[in-house]
Design a protein around this nucleic acid. Structure first.
Lengths: 358, 358
DNA sequence: CTGAAAGCGCTTACAG
DNA sequence: CTGAAAGCGCTTACAG
């Protein structure tokens, strides 16, 4: 009934190559490990035979003998954000270069969190882990600290671990400052749930810009989502919070809004239109993330260099994995200002301004 | 300089457990493999000690001895579609149950395709593969056929391999029939690139419905994207193709449109609005996929049971992997009709109709 | 530069 | 029910 996998019958081992090449198995192994002390001619012969016999080293045997898994795990909190897809792509591409495998480990079922994390962190399944967009609470920190593999946090921060993040404070600051520079004195914010690290920093940057410009910070002009789905980074919360703004007397509400994400900004836009107002004529809007749709909505926004961040995270991790580099490093990427229609800027539309130059 | 990983010093092996429990290592192994012939008391003692010593079997040693990788690979063409995220989530959840690892392998660099595929399919890195949303051309079929691990295609079809797909013909048929039932006689379609399997079937379903209703199928009323980014499933193509429709004399163009995806429908909606028209008053629209935004746009659409499809794909694959089940099975999921505002239906808004009941 | 041999940590007939 | 031993396919000091 059960078909015997043909691989069992066909698979060549180091012994096949060795006997065919009339050398010891150690020599074959050395060839495949690029050991320097192998005679050129021997190496050529072994390689030629290996190719002919379609040989490739057995990954698990190699891993057992080397005591390394040649695998990196991406620990992801959720599979459904724009950032997640982009970063995963970037991580995958970065890793290809190292010939490491990429394992995926989710954390979606809260009560399973510890189990699957421990499984991956402690059982030698991976030589390193990339932990994505996860608020590092005390309980999680404890687990991570007891891990015996190198870790790099991506899009989240904790002083104890290396991390790669976008500078959210700076991005929010730039966006808000841009609105102020356009002459707005009444500036509001629609924020995501502040238990998320980026949401918190974006709020911080917003306040910083207002303070610097001596603009009133009216508490009722900062509306913060308490939603737990996607930490409030949803169309829904944008729509609802803007709806609440629209319900205020129009002399008592902001003329410009910094929104902590583009998805929310799209929802906010809808609420603005439903209130019979136009963007940017009546309401100026600034988003964050530069999702694909942002361009089509003419949404001014902040762009994170996700590809670069992913690449950088992989390199940071691999330095730890392959060279035992144990330093804690925090990489913070300057965001770019992408100016389009929605903020009512007089700049030529679709101007990209690099945050690091400001 | 190089810090010795503490795991090297700490890791317990089967020998530690065996000596502590005063049994042979074989017995310890049997306990962890749930071998039936182990004395209850022995099992208890071994387990107790293993827990106390924080022992877990070394994955690679186990894999080598068992000649199985206990890993499944997801082969993904691209990291950036709504469907991809959802299905990956579903696959991940399904796999958790089996204690198999999930490896991710992309194919984004076309010239690397063969290499990375072969690597994953032939080197015993995985016991099975889930191949996602990939048009199975001749060259790819050859590679897949020479693979020595079980394969399940997801969201794509080829007679030679088991597959799990949504019934795209049926979905498109239902959507189009619904438009016709609302009284529309002039129905157009905005289609994605037909080298994609779902795009092709959605076009087929559209034509089928028209034929059944004896409605004219005017070639100029079917606009097909030729874009290669995401196979034309983009906001952009929806916008442009609808723009082209809007440029036609309004007596010469359709009053209703079936659009092969929601992202495209959102773009199409924009083009409609820019032409000064309203949906559904002037133009009826029907999308496909039921992405998150669809609800907010009041977009009538077709919903695929992605979670179910993912679960089913995993179970199909695992039956092959663990039981050697070699039958080729094609699972086709009936889609649901989600009726909202955009098609101008008189049905109560947001009605979900199960496709299998029609 | 190279071979023989021990070792990586398991599994599993085999014999009792 | 259980132990001793061979085997999974590699790597790598060690000795030459």
């Amino acid at each position: 009934m059960e078909a015997l996998p043909s691989s069992l019958l066909l698979r060549k081992t180091i012994y096949d190559i060795a006997s065919e090449a009339r050398v010891g198995i150690g020599t074959v192994s050395r060839v495949f490990n690029n050991h320097p002390r192998v005679a050129k001619e021997t190496r050529r012969r072994v390689l030629e035979i290996a190719t002919r016999l379609n040989y490739s080293p057995h990954p698990h045997a190699r891993r057992l003998a080397k005591q390394k898994s040649f695998t990196v795990v991406a620990v992801v909190p959720s599979f459904s954000s724009y950032f997640f897809m982009e970063i995963l792509q970037a991580l995958h591409d970065g890793l290809r270069h190292y010939e490491y495998d990429l394992l995926l480990s989710g954390l979606d079922h809260p009560h399973h969190t510890n189990l699957s994390l421990t499984r991956v962190l402690d059982e030698q399944r991976a030589d390193g882990a990339l932990v994505l967009s996860f608020p590092i609470k005390q309980s999680l920190r404890v687990i991570l600290e007891s891990s015996n593999i190198p870790l790099v946090l991506v899009d989240t921060y904790d002083a104890a671990f290396s991390s790669v993040t976008g500078d959210n404070v700076q991005g929010a600051y730039l966006a808000t400052r841009h609105l102020a520079a356009l002459g707005h004195q009444r500036i509001g914010m629609i924020a995501a749930n502040t238990n998320s690290f980026p949401a918190r920093d974006r709020l911080k940057g917003f306040k910083k810009a207002l303070a610097e410009r001596d603009i009133d910070l009216r508490p009722e002009w900062i509306k913060i989502s308490r939603s737990h789905t996607m930490d409030g980074f949803t169309y829904e919360t944008g729509y609802q919070l803007m709806h609440a703004f629209m319900a205020m007397n129009h002399r008592e509400r902001p003329t410009a809004y910094f929104v902590s994400s583009d998805v929310q900004a799209v929802g906010a836009l809808r609420a603005v239109e439903e209130a019979g107002l136009k963007c940017p004529e009546d309401v100026a809007l600034f988003g964050y993330d530069d999702i694909v749709l942002a361009e089509h909505y003419g949404l001014s926004t902040i762009r994170q260099q996700i590809r670069d961040m992913g690449k950088s995270a992989v390199e940071l991790l691999m330095a730890k994995v392959t060279e035992g580099d144990a330093k804690v490093v925090h990489k913070r990427y300057a965001p770019q200002l992408v100016v389009r229609r929605s903020c009512g800027s007089t700049l030529k539309h679709h101007t990209v301004i690099d945050g690091s130059s400001l």
